[in-house]
Nucleic acid binder design. Sequence first.
RNA 1: GGCCCCAUCGUCUAACGGUUAGGACGCCGGGUUUUCAUCCCGGCAACCGGAGUUCGAUUCUCCGUGGGGUCACCA
Length: 489
Amino acid sequence: MEETTFKGVRTRMAPSPTGEYHIGHIRTLLYNIAYARKHGGKFIVRIEDTDRTRFVPDATEKILDVIRDYGFSWDEGPEAEGKFGPYVQSERLNLYKKYALELVEKKHAYYCFCTSERLAELREVQQKQGVSATRYDRACLKLSQTEIEQKLASNTPYVIRLKVPENEEISFHDEILGDITFNSSDIDDQVLLKSDGYPTYHLAVVVDDHLMGVTHIMRGTDWVPSTPKHVLLYRAFGWKMPITAHLPNIKEKGANKKLSKRFGPVSAREFLEEGYLVPALVNFLMFLGWNPGTEKEIYTLEEFVQDFDTKKIQHTDLVAFDRDKLLWLNGIYIRQLTDSQLWEEVTKWAQKYNVALLSSAKNDEFNIKVISLIKERLKVLKEFSELTEFFYIRPSVDISMTVSYAGNEATAKEIITNFAGEYERVSEGDWNTEYLDKYSHELLEKYGYKPKEAFMTLRVFLTGKTATPPLFDVLSLLGKDQTLERLKI
RNA sequence: GGCCCCAUCGUCUAACGGUUAGGACGCCGGGUUUUCAUCCCGGCAACCGGAGUUCGAUUCUCCGUGGGGUCACCA
């Protein structure tokens, strides 16, 4: 099964079911998909659930769901079994053990029977000695063959460790960072197979990437220091190392720290819940470390796939997640939708995230008109309710809000009374934006009001707000009855 | 602390030895406007420091400084 014929590029994303999927993971996923698509290759999703202490039961399903919510799919992986499955590491345990033993056989790895207590002590002692980096003392490497066999026979718990060579240069070429060299003496003898029979990340990832024919690995720069360990493993197995491309990590803008809830959403799901549109989010994510070198910045996924190139990825350690820019971009995508498309987005979103909309009392025709009036003011779907509340329910009005426009409360009341009386006489047939606009300006002359004092006073009485869509559009949509109702003092 | 990586406006970035160092977000100002927003116009704003290579360095080299990552039976 090993030297199967793999055709073309194969990339993968390998989430661990230990919690929520981070927005940065979607960025990495996006790049992996784009690379595979661009080169006509395959994209694989593999579940790395080898840490049973941090395992969260329904995390896998949640992660897969959110990946789908972002509009992505995978060619091979859970629920899309390809030839190289299973795609869940806990279902591949015998495989890892077999390869770990192969390494022991080849003297590239060895049994270690040290308890975690001894290892902790060892580290403590080394730290007290001021050692630059603590590492395993290789006590078990000195064990004789008979000693090893005795311990195995008596069921002494063991791990299998990689025998890292002394003072060797380990170099690899990274597509983004260029050539990177480590010295093997700085690398500890990694545990490959844990005492519970599960592999560690290092063993599992190498075995699986090889067996699944992965050709390109794109992941965050935090993985750079473990790459030489993988190089060693590929060497020991005699396998070809995939090409690596380490992506800059994402940080909170204005602070050299990772994203924090203090500033807003962090998990992929939270951004959707907030009401960011998927194409806007994806567009934003594209530019977290990449740019086309042109001034184009509104990108569809298809266009991104076309223009994506690892050569255009930033050679930097961190890129800032600019929440303001995301908000701006989302506004652009919102305004690109037609009114009915936006309305559909709002309802789908509200349903998915259990948001109660006041609009349920009205028909779609009315709701879509509301949308048309607030579309250019909407930045995230979450704001919809706040922006449109007064169309559905009568606002509570604080008359003192009108004072800065009308001068005093008495004048405000006078304005309201006068306009209410005049609007009373407008026929239903004339109750539209154009006529109301024209007529109201005539009333300004008649009563000698300034536009601002009269219209702002009306606005506040009708909406409870000082910032709303154009007044006569609001009047028109509210209807004559509702308007007069709200102007009763 | 050891090791590895990185360094252009506040932010994301363009530039691949010679440019008035360009664009976008944000910010400021102006226009449209009864408000807010949209839209349009304009403005402020950057090559971390020091050596070296070169006729010429933001760009190449080295050192310093700063930042990040990583040193688990976690991934």
